[in-house]
Write a protein that binds this DNA or RNA. Structure first.
Lengths: 162, 162
DNA sequence: TTACGTGCAAATAATTTGCAGTCCC
DNA sequence: GGGACTGCAAATTATTTGCACGTAA
């Protein structure tokens, strides 16, 4: 379950740049990516993958991606969208983001980065700047190790000066 | 909705210490706290408040608190537990924690602090040490301001040396 | 071909809500 | 006493699952 797959083989930012840059070959590249992850490149997976990765880094919910697929005339069911999102996540193509709100959010940027969460609209935005860091991580208890550090900066609309 | 209540009037850590210290008067203090928050101190609310605040800082889910209430012979329904948790949260007595997993977690420590999340057991643990900080917060976009910064350090069991 | 995928609908799971009855002030 | 609170069950919302059919290798 953990030895053969290597989802972080290359810098995911590099990947994203690839998609946006060369749109001709991106399809082929995506199929390859799926195959390497042990996922058969079916029409639905390639289509969803295209919606997810062609436009640079994105944050989606299952519902949102499903709507996009419908608009794009991709024949797919909501259940398959859920399944696909989780398969992509397990393969390291996506990452789940923990913000509150009932819905689960997925991020196409699997690299180490943090998020703004706009409370008003339940929207997630990448923090682009590199000048944020968590300093002096505390020691994990007993036999534990750090798997990931999530930082969410929650934003609200600034009160009108009144 | 925002001018009259002042949930952060005093340091919540002080509050927690209070509960554990003087258990005789804590009931009365809790009732007062509820009243100040505009919540009538009913049997259920006082009972749940007691379960929540009497043992120092805690992290609970609705389900968990409900089970405790049943064990404690507190006559309460799951729906009321949900309602109460949200009322407490709105009043600033509790805080919601965003980790993933389907269930919503509530934290009795409303002060500024961060969390470990143990992936294996879906457990939340306070980070006690003060030597963690987010440095150089990025500038929020346009008319937004920072409402809160959440930091979750996700832990997994360290792989046996194999 | 043939196992892996997918669609649909039904099943779960967590949470919310409506309303009749109960309890605090 | 009267309005706020609660309990229950039914309703919602998000997500998962089972199974017959479709499709990529």
């Amino acid at each position: 379950m953990s030895t053969s797959t290597e989802p972080y083989r290359d810098d995911p930012r590099e990947k994203s740049r690839l998609w946006t840059a060369q749109s001709g070959c991106a399809f082929h590249d995506l199929r390859l990516k799926l195959k390497n992850s042990g996922l058969r490149p079916t029409r639905q997976r390639v289509g969803l993958g295209w919606l997810l990765f062609a436009k640079g880094d994105r944050h989606v919910t299952a519902e949102l991606l499903f709507e996009e697929a419908v608009k794009a005339r991709l024949p797919v069911s909501l259940a398959t969208v859920y399944n696909t999102l989780h398969q992509f996540t397990e393969s390291g193509l996506l990452r789940e983001i923990a913000v509150d709100g009932a819905k689960t959010h997925f991020d196409t940027n699997t690299g180490n980065h943090y998020h703004f969460f706009i409370e008003d609209t339940n929207t997630i935005v990448d923090i682009q700047e590199a000048n944020i860091a968590v300093s002096a991580l505390p020691t994990p208890p007993d036999g534990m190790e750090i798997s990931r550090v999530d930082v969410v900066i929650r934003l609200r609309r600034k009160e009108p000066s009144s």
